[in-house]
């Protein structure tokens, strides 16, 4: 009886260790789950859809690509086998941290939405402003955003404003390269 009890307790313990370990090792998973949830919510809103599919677009690294396409950051959005557009989740630096942002495109790679998904640093978070992010809308892959010219400055958030502007420029020029070379 005593031995049985010991075994049972050891399994309960083991079970908790497994769960505990999974919660530790999956800290990143929690992050991408939250981000994925936000991405899906945004797609629903922008494309006015309840059901849709997301499929990763695999792109091999080439030196001409300044944007990062690893980790399935570019996703194709489709519904009932009809291609609707693309979602790109990027990571860019703020002063001492990084932030995650989303750019939604239509089929022709025209920007339908730009959003900051996760901003970690105390300073510079002003770039999350919906009003400010509107400046990126309706532009195609040939467009170049220039800080203070066609992208307004935000006092106190200069580093993040420049970083986001630069990130979107790199994404557009990379997509342009992929389109020109018929890779996508």
């Amino acid at each position: 009886m005593g031995l049985h009890r010991k075994i049972n307790w050891s399994f309960v313990l083991l079970y908790f260790v497994v769960i505990l370990c999974s919660s530790f090792s999956n800290h990143e998973n929690v992050l991408y789950k939250n981000i994925l949830k936000k991405v899906k919510k945004e797609i629903s809103k922008v494309f006015v859809l309840e059901d849709f599919e997301l499929n990763p677009v695999q792109i091999q690294p080439i030196k001409e690509l300044t944007a990062d396409f690893s980790g399935n950051r570019l996703l194709e959005i489709s519904s009932n086998d009809i291609k609707l557009g693309y979602a790109y989740v990027g990571t860019a630096p703020s002063k001492t941290e990084t932030f995650e942002y989303l750019v939604l495109f239509d089929n022709q790679f025209v920007i339908k939405k730009a959003k900051v998904l996760l901003y970690r640093e105390s300073w510079g978070g002003e770039i999350g402003s919906k009003r400010w992010l509107k400046q990126f809308l309706l532009k195609g892959t040939n467009h170049k955003f220039i800080y203070r010219q066609n992208i307004s400055a935000i006092s106190g958030a200069t580093i993040s404003v420049k970083s986001m502007t630069n990130a979107v420029n790199e994404l557009l020029s990379s997509l342009n390269f992929l389109i020109q070379n018929k890779i996508i």
Binding site: H27, Y32, K33, I35, L54, P56, N72, T91
Partner: peptide
């Protein structure tokens, strides 16, 4: 889900 989006923190 990890196949969908695999971000490095």
């Amino acid at each position: 889900e990890k196949q969908m989006l695999n971000l490095q923190t």
